[in-house]
Design a protein around this nucleic acid. Structure first.
Length: 578
RNA sequence: GCCCCGGUAGCUCAGUUGGAUAGAGCAGCCGCCUCCUAAGCGGCAGGUCAGACGUUCGAGUCGUCUUCGGGGCGCCA
């Protein structure tokens, strides 16, 4: 409907250009059409005349009048008016609104979808937390956001592939391996040490226990040494411990434990995600780019293009050439590659798979990496514009007023799994997505638990369940709807409000998808639910005269459908009873 | 010191790319179940949009500065 209004305005403007009242160059790329805030100002309004007034040297209201006069007639427009400083308000014909109900009932779960004019093929990477511990509440936000975004974009008509990038090699995995070794020792009745810097959480014991069950017989502990952990910085102690454990167990046995821990951890994470309905299309392991040689190729590309140099025994990438604030190390002076190096190879891999855009959802703590990653893509000869990186702000966890620190290494965190256990998948997802991504999120556990019955998600679900209930009643009373969809007489205000809201659903999907803002859907559903609950309280649907009754049944069925479509995007269930 | 995000009702947050008289939920107060689910509805009250200046017909929205809060600035991941 919005597009149709815009179309009318465009035709009018074109005519004025032809008549010499306006010049083509003055026209904006997109003609503004909005919903007036106040009732009585029409269904749609455009401030186009206000914008054009200055550049064309005409008074806004005069110009608005010319535009209005040149508007082509359209059956769905009841009337137009010039209002305020020069707005053109559009009043939609009641009949056109009523037809929206039919439209929803014809299109069903397709209503509101495929609203994008030129669909893209998109690769969306999100979560990608290191497999060194279960997901915590902070990761949950990225997971809920990313998954909802994927659903939203698909719904709007884009083609989306989702991926999880796993850092499966490097020091962190060694530390995880050592941590599991220590807990395994404990299970064998030996004395183990778990100094600071080694993963402390209970989940490490669980991994060790599963390892023992599966592979306990294959491990030869031999003489367990006394581990030296004195002196040096935290990092030095940890590195020394890794060496000691490797020497003691031998590379083969250590690798066995390390790789088991990795696989086990990945499974835990996969299960954590599944518990809130998040499933990635693919999982990409960092080791893939090393084994395939892509890592070397990537570095060669940069070298060939002349953006690498050596200094202080390390190999640097000239990211400052592309707007980064300083150059970055690719190969450390000890010969090891940084994670940045394999990240470059991975992102080149993604950009070369044939998507229009590659979208990354990163935690806000990674914002310093955007410039260097885009720099690397450019240096390697790719169009960095195709890589879109979006940040999701942190979720800080509170228990009442008490802030809960979150550290995987220290084992202090509230896991996502615990959260979902306590407040459920639907409430968890809705809570996360209710905030726009660039807003800090204070997740108060006490509150989330105590107000769980007042969570907006139940308000929306309740609307859906209530409608289901009306249809159950209808069956019980043996009521059979006629197939006609006309409304006898005039619609009431509550009905029109509801229909207007339904008619906006496609616009909301378009807007939310365009802005990558899933929260718009959540707020829309809440508003739709409000309109429905109002309507429900105002009229007795089943007690009306058959023609009116049947129209209202169609109306709430349309509401039910839109609620279901919207909840599907959020990954929240649409229950039939509550 | 530099960079990113934020500051809107007592609390948690929206605010449709600069528009008309700034909204919702929770908390508070007053009403509504003989009736399809009261996890609901109606009403009241609640605001210097952190502050200042600027841009213009018009600013919660854009710019500069100040201030407060969160995060980031490594041959860590």
């Amino acid at each position: 409907m919005k597009h149709k209004i815009r179309q009318l305005l465009k035709q009018s403007l074109d005519q004025l250009v032809e008549g010499g009242d306006l010049e083509l160059a003055m026209l904006p790329a997109q003609i503004p059409v909005e919903h007036p805030r106040r009732a009585g100002q029409g269904d749609y309004a455009s401030g186009i005349a206000l914008g054009l007034a200055r550049v064309s040297g005409q008074k806004p209201r005069d110009l608005a009048g010319k535009i209005q006069a040149a508007l082509p007639a359209a059956p769905f427009v009841e009337s137009t008016e010039i209002a305020g400083p020069g707005f053109i308000n559009f009043f939609v014909a009641e009949q056109a609104l009523i037809e929206v109900v039919s439209e929803v009932l014809d299109e069903r779960d397709k209503y509101g979808t495929k609203v994008i004019e030129n669909p893209h093929k998109v690769l969306l990477e999100y979560v990608s937390a290191n497999p060194t511990g279960p997901l915590h509440v902070g990761h949950g936000r990225g997971a809920a956001f990313g998954d909802t975004l994927a659903r939203l974009l698909r719904s709007a008509g884009h083609q989306v592939d989702t991926e999880y990038y796993v850092n499966d090699i490097g020091r962190q995995m060694d530390i995880l391996g050592v941590s599991v070794c220590m807990r395994y020792l404990e299970l064998e009745g030996q004395t183990a040490i778990v100094p600071q810097g080694v993963y402390q959480g209970m989940y490490v014991r669980d991994i060790a226990a599963r390892f023992k069950r599966r592979h306990g017989r294959e491990i030869e502990l031999g003489e367990v040494p006394r581990f030296e952990v004195d002196g040096g910085t935290l990092d030095e102690v940890v590195d020394s411990l890794i060496r000691q454990v490797r020497d003691w167990l031998g590379e083969a046995q250590f690798e066995m434990i390390r790789s088991f821990a990795l696989a086990d951890m990945v499974e835990v994470i996969r299960a954590d995600l599944e518990a809130i309905g998040v499933v990635h299309d693919s999982w990409f392991f960092e080791s893939q780019v090393t084994k395939s040689g892509e890592l070397e190729e990537a570095i060669n590309d940069l070298e060939k293009n002349g953006f690498l140099y050596r200094s202080g025994g390390a190999r640097w990438f000239q990211s400052s050439e592309f707007g980064d604030e300083k150059d970055r190390v690719l190969t450390r002076s000890n010969g090891e590659l940084t994670y940045f190096a394999s990240d470059i190879a991975y992102h080149l891999n993604k950009l070369r798979r044939g998507h229009d855009y590659v979208i990354n959802i990163w935690g806000a703590d990674h914002h310093g990496y955007i410039a260097r990653m885009k720099a690397a893509m450019q240096a390697a000869g790719e169009n960095a514009e195709r890589l879109r990186i979006y940040l999701v702000q942190f979720a800080a966890l509170y228990r009442g007023k008490q802030k809960i620190p979150m550290s995987t290494r220290a084992g202090e965190f509230v896991s996502l799994a615990e959260l979902v256990d306590e407040i459920g998948q639907d409430a968890t997802r809705f809570f996360y997505v209710l905030r726009k991504p660039d807003q800090h999120l204070d997740f108060d556990l006490e509150l989330a638990k105590s107000v769980s019955n007042e969570n907006p998600v139940y308000y929306v679900q309740y609307a859906h369940a209530r409608i289901c209930s009306v249809f159950r009643q209808m069956s019980e009373r043996g009521i059979v709807r006629s197939t006609g969809r006309n409304l006898p007489g005039r619609a009431e205000q509550v009905e029109l409000n509801l229909i207007r809201r339904i008619s906006k659903f496609p616009e909301v999907i378009e807007s939310a998808a365009q802005a990558l803002e899933p929260h718009q859907i959540a707020y829309y559903l809440r508003d739709l639910s409000t309109d429905f609950h109002s309507f429900y309280n105002r009229v007795r649907i089943l007690d009306g005269e058959p023609p009116l009754r049947d129209f209202r049944l169609n109306l709430i069925e349309a509401v039910q459908q839109v609620l279901a479509n919207g909840l599907e995007i959020l990954g929240v269930s649409a229950p039939e009873t509550m």
